[in-house]
Structures are given as C-alpha cells and as structure tokens.
C-alpha cells in the first residue's frame, strides 16, 4: 500500500444481511426434517458441519476474496489438492514443516497467477483454468497418480479431537482464519482497497489505490487459503488425494454466491462467505443424516448452483433494479398526487 499515514481505524460492516436468514432457515430445516425420516440431528451433526466448513469453507474464502476484487480463481480446487499433497510428502518428520512447505508452494503459485493477471490484464477465469490444470498436474505427478497416505496419524487425531462436544482444534483454526480475514477486510487499508478495486477499478486507480498490488496479493491469498484447507483435510484424514474432483470448487462458488458475493465484485465479505459455507455444509449434512444416497448431494448442489448463478446474472439483476425504479417512481407520483390534492382543498 502507498505510504499512507496510519489512520484511526474505523470499523465499517458493509455486507448484505440476508445470508444470515438463509443460514437460520437451514438450521431449522436440519433439525426439523430428519424426524420425518425417523432420524435425528444431534450435537454430532453440528460438529460434522463445523468440521467440513473449516476445510471447504477455507477454499470458499479464498475464492471469495478473488470475487470481491472482481476476478475469479478457478484454480482453488487445484491448490487445495496441491497443498495437501506437498504437506503430506514433506511433513512426515514434522507436520509444521509440511504445513509451511505446502503454503509456500501454493502462495507462490497464486502470486505468479496474480502477477500475470494484473500486469498483462488477462481474464482471470481463462488464466486460472490453465492454473488449475497445472496445479492438478503437479499434484498427481508428486503423488504418482494415487493417494498418498500420511504416516503421522497423531496430528489428525489431535486436530479432530472434539472439544466441548461440537468444536475441535481444526474448527478453531477455521474460525480463527475467518475472523482474521474479516478483520482484515473491515479494518485495514488493504481490505478497503480490495473492496474498492472490485467495486470500481478505474475509480480506485485514480483515487490512488494500488490496484495491481491488491490483485496480486489477493491471488496469493486465495491459493494460500485453499492450500490451508487442503492441508487440514490431508492431515485429518491422513491421506492426500491426487484428484479430489470439482466438488471443492462447486462448494466454494455456491457458498460465495449464497453469501451475498457478486460475480462483478465489490460486494460481500468473510461473514457472508461463512454463512454461505455453513449453509451448504448443513445441507449436505442433512442429506447424510437422512441417509440419502451420495448423488442427492451432487444433485442438489448442482441445482442450487444453477439457481444462484441465474439469480446473479445480469438479466435478473437488471429486472430487480427496474422494478425498484418503477416502485420508487410510483411512490414519488403518489406523493405528488396526494400533496396536490391536499393543497387544492
């Protein structure tokens, strides 16, 4: 960031509020629906939901940051796998070494992507598609095209150990990361710069925001967050898969869109992403509780994603805006009419 004097930090929360209601709705459903199928949700359900959100939510957070800046990182599904694989391969002696290695590799990867996107002004979706393939290819090559098991089972057990019935160290890590990003977005200049860049790139540049630096850092962060999620997953299951498929990406996109983020950028933040991620984790846990077959989750997430993407499409957004304009004009004309009639009497 440019040499700006430290300003008194002013807290501003500018995210849409409706994702919270959506989440609440899903909480209600999670407890209301299973009894219909002779099942029941319990504290263990909550624990599971939080466990999954801690991992996949991190990927969503990474993707979400790039969306807020007005870009899109398709490669998060790849860095998710790559981070886990590197950590498993290099962390047999000391899990922290594995963690650092995985993060270092992926963050560097992300920064390079960000650099190309920022300086060469390339469509981030197209570039990160290539990045996804490279990351996936690297993962498979390192892993010899099969899953690699992690010999250190202890770390997984420690991370997964239930604390207070519904929490665990893994979950605390997730909460800490979300909180850190939340504070970053709302308190620091970098966070403001990210939202400004997404909300109006040209205006931000003329106002002096270092747009290129913001973009580069954001892509480094998205890769790093996705890698962190993958590393957590790998340690906790003591396995690193060569190809986890596109589900992490689907989860992430749906979570972000449900969390109030837009594809155009500028809107939303960590709080919304957390709501969206929890919502989807709850949904899939709900299916699990009622013992629905695996494909049901895929079916619902796919449908949900289509619905949400359509809701975020230019056509729908425009129709919303037009309806709002029409409504406000009607209110104006009604107000004029009543004031006319009252002044005439």
């Amino acid at each position: 960031m440019s040499a700006q004097a430290r300003m008194k930090p002013r807290f501003s929360f500018a995210e849409p509020k409706w994702p919270v209601f959506l989440l609440l709705a899903l909480v209600i459903l999670t407890f209301a629906i299973p009894p219909i199928f002779n099942q029941a949700s319990s504290a263990f359900t909550i624990y599971n939901v939080l466990q999954n959100t801690a991992v996949l939510g991190m990927v969503a957070l990474g993707l979400g940051l790039t969306m807020i800046v007005g870009e899109f990182d398709l490669s998060v599904a790849g860095t998710y796998a790559l981070g886990g694989m590197v950590a498993v391969k290099l962390g047999t002696g000391n899990p922290f070494v594995g963690l650092l290695a995985g993060l270092a590799v992926c963050v560097t990867f992300g920064l390079i992507q960000g650099l190309i996107i920022a300086k060469l002004k390339i469509n981030s979706m197209a570039l990160t598609l290539g990045g996804y393939l490279v990351a996936l290819g690297l993962t498979g090559t390192i892993g010899n095209n099969k899953s690699q098991s992690f010999s250190n089972y202890d770390i997984g057990i420690q991370l997964n150990q239930p604390i207070g019935t519904v929490f665990s160290i893994r979950i605390f890590i997730g909460i800490a990361v979300f909180l850190a990003v939340f504070l970053l977005m709302n308190l620091t200049n970098l966070g403001r710069g990210m939202r400004a860049t997404g909300g109006g790139r040209r205006a931000s540049r003329t106002a002096g925001v270092r747009v290129d630096a913001v973009v580069i850092l954001t892509f480094g962060a998205s890769a790093g967050l996705a890698a962190l999620g993958g590393i957590l997953q790998a340690y906790c299951t003591a396995t690193a898969t060569s190809n986890p498929g596109l589900f992490p990406l689907i989860f992430a996109v749906t979570a972000c869109l449900l969390g109030g983020l837009g594809l155009a950028g500028g809107r939303g933040g960590a709080f919304g992403i957390a709501c969206g991620a929890l919502t989807i984790a709850m949904l899939s846990e709900l299916f699990s509780t009622v013992a629905a077959p695996q494909y049901v989750t895929g079916l619902f997430t796919g449908l949900l994603l289509i619905v949400v993407t359509t809701a975020a499409s230019p056509y729908v957004v425009r129709k919303w805006r037009e309806r709002r304009i029409d409504r406000s004009l009607k209110i104006e004309s009604k107000a004029l009419a009543t004031s006319d009639s009252s002044s005439q009497s």
Partner: peptide
C-alpha cells in the same frame, strides 16, 4: 466514487 464502499471509506480512499 466506488458505490460499494461506505461514505467514509470513499472520502478516505487514496
């Protein structure tokens, strides 16, 4: 102005 920022943030921007 960047419409997604608050008034204060826009005033401080850059």
């Amino acid at each position: 102005l960047v419409s997604v920022l608050t008034v204060e943030e826009n005033l401080r921007l850059g």
